[in-house]
């Protein structure tokens, strides 16, 4: 990270000191509640029928971890970025300092990734407490969760930079984030879906993240091999960053 980017990052870290309390709930409590409700409660009925090789709680836990990475990334890239352009206008304030649009983007993205890493760490600790991590390779699930965040967040930054009304976030959340969280293999195997839906799941970065996380915590193999899944996440991250940089340069240059 270059020095100016670090300076931009510092700005977001300082403002996080004022708002961290509320985010504990959205970033940590909510996924744990999901895990309890689905894994423990509904899981009791599923385990009784024995349709899966592992306990349902242990089956969904790595999936919820990956989708936590996705959701925190999307949240951090949505209202915060829109506000920085339109409400608090802090990007514009930074722009008149020596920071370049790339520095601003890099600093804010790094901050978002830190937030993802923080939430994912908390969640991994909860998983450990529930005994959902079956192998030492489980620790690798943490970087994967960050990778899932990195695969979508830059694109969300670009989206937030170009939309003209904050109402369009509802579209992003409900047509992209929620379907991905629900149909990318977190709660049930994607094989159960009809072919067109399965193809969409394969295209989504989250499914690849779920495969990797599940393989890490349960010490099993992935569907298409680790390099394919990891490479796919990397592809999205890099392409997303290049697009976001173009948009930021255009938006922050007169």
């Amino acid at each position: 990270m270059t020095r100016p980017t670090a300076m931009a990052l510092e700005y977001f870290l300082v403002s996080y000191r004022r708002t961290w309390r509320g985010t504990i709930f959205s970033a940590f409590v909510t996924p744990v509640l999901f895990l309890l409700a689905m894994g423990k409660t509904v899981g009791t009925y599923i385990d009784a029928r024995g349709g899966l090789e592992v306990a349902y709680l242990d089956y969904i836990a790595p999936g919820v971890l990956a989708s936590t990475g996705l959701q925190i990334g999307i949240f951090e890239g949505s209202f915060a970025v829109y506000s920085a352009f339109h409400w608090s206008r802090c990007y514009h304030a930074m722009r008149v300092s020596p920071l370049s649009p790339s520095n601003i983007l890099g600093g804010h993205l790094s901050y978002a990734m830190l937030r993802v890493a923080l939430s994912a760490t908390g969640f991994v600790l909860v998983m450990t407490a529930f005994g959902s991590i079956h192998s030492a390779t489980g620790v690798l699930a943490l970087p994967v969760a960050v990778g899932v965040g990195a695969s979508v967040t830059p694109l969300v930054f670009a989206y937030s930079a170009v939309i003209s009304t904050e109402g369009l976030f509802a579209v992003l959340f409900r047509f992209v984030m929620v379907p991905m969280s629900l149909f990318a293999g977190v709660f049930f195997p994607v094989d159960a879906m009809p072919a067109p839906a399965r193809v969409l799941a394969y295209l989504s970065p989250l499914w690849h993240g779920v495969e990797l996380c599940r393989a890490a915590t349960l010490a099993t193999s992935t569907a298409w091999g680790v390099p394919v899944h990891a490479g796919y996440l990397l592809l999205w991250s890099v392409a997303g960053f290049l697009i976001a940089r173009r948009v930021f340069v255009r938006k922050l240059t007169d």
Binding site: M38, Y45, R49, Y56, F183
Partner: peptide
């Protein structure tokens, strides 16, 4: 509707 399809139908296949 998405929740119904995912949890109701998808997870439903596991629950019965």
């Amino acid at each position: 509707l998405l929740y119904l399809l995912s949890i109701g139908v998808g997870v439903g296949a596991l629950v019965g």
